[in-house]
Design a protein around this nucleic acid. Sequence first.
DNA 1: CGCCACACCTGACGGC
DNA 2: TGCCGTCAGGTGTGGC
Length: 275
Amino acid sequence: MPELPETETIARDLHASVAGRTVAKVTVARPDVLREVGERAFRRRLRGVGIVGSWRRAKLIVTDLSTRDRLVVQPRFTGALIVDDGTLDPALLAYSTIRLVLDDGRSIHYCDVRRLGTVALMNETRFEEYSAALGIEPLDSTFTASQLSGVLRVSNQPVKKVLMDQRRIAGIGNIYANEALWRAGIDPSRAAGTIAAGEAALLRDSIVAVLEESIAARGTSFRDYRDAKGQRGGFAAKLQVYGREGQPCVRCGSRLVGTHAIDGRATVFCARCQS
DNA sequence: CGCCACACCTGACGGC
DNA sequence: TGCCGTCAGGTGTGGC
């Protein structure tokens, strides 16, 4: 799915593009993506409602509505929130599951090939409850070396799995966990509790740097990801381990190793410079 | 509570 | 060519 940088890109684009508009009409082509509300309530609670603005929490795109409801989109693997001014690629439009027609004639589509992603409508209380179960934002000033060190210290799980646990740290997925661990020189399978304070500090800086660099490049389109304009992100060309199994480590030249031993997810790392 | 298997979906690709 | 197994930026649940 869109991880933090991709979700951030979508939320920023959406905010710039549709804040202040009104939802004129709602179409639900694939009700199985809906969560928290049924199709009828979803349409009723959105029709005629104002869009205040959009922002990101974890890997969610949150849109505040004039009713104080929040539209919460979780793209998971293949979801995309795209604003169509009439020129959208028909190949993307074919997978539209939900369409919000705006008062200016444009539409917001939630497109999703696999439909593992979700679209929910929550009132403020419900959203706060949901958000409270998610971990710290890695781009928040409170995400410090000692904060990360504290999170890692209490776990015996592989450090990569801890980085991807949304209840502990919100927004890091498989691509950026692999990239940050390579940058920090830490073996992804190491028990989190064995990470020393100095290593945690390096890992914190690596996480923040890779996320910020990716946001600057508008995210990673390894395969499906598209931004709110239906465009690809530019960070795939800058990936140093993810998708590079068998290729030389750009730091030491050693062959990068691939495994599925950690939580069944694709892990790529350099056995020589990550320990 | 922790851990694990599995469910949710479709499409692309490689092997036979 | 076509069929089958495997894999893919993720999360939630139910069983032990």
